[in-house]
Amino acid sequence: MTIDEQQKQLIAQFQLLDGDMEMALQYIMELGEELPGITDEERSDENIVKGCQSKVWLIASLENGKIQFKADSNTAITKGLVSMLVKVLNHQRPEDVLSAEIHFPEKIGMNRFIGTQRSNGFASMIKQINYYAVALSTEKSNA
């Protein structure tokens, strides 16, 4: 699936929840559960996304020219939020990640779940993903 298709699917899922806050939180936490775990070693300060109020660890690697993301958080809801980003951007080419327009947070009304202050944290996650994509696209072209 393309990044846009992934976003469309996520938005459709949230539309089914019909704005119910509890159902949305439940769904977000379930998405978090789907994230592949990270090792204790990977849970290092180096992999922490700066600017998030909760702790978020984000790791990226290149496999067959596509980015593999791994992530974790110390809170279940934030883990779900980062999981959505990973779901949308995982297994994509670095250049596609960089050129992607991430519009699903707005469409699913994410500010309701994370608050204005925390949306800065979400922006930090996207920034970190872009840093990885830039670094990995350089790695790819040097390979």
Partner: peptide, 14 residues
Amino acid sequence: GIHSYDLGMWLDAR
């Protein structure tokens, strides 16, 4: 075992 942020969000949902 539960982060205060998660509980705060769930309480707000109620």
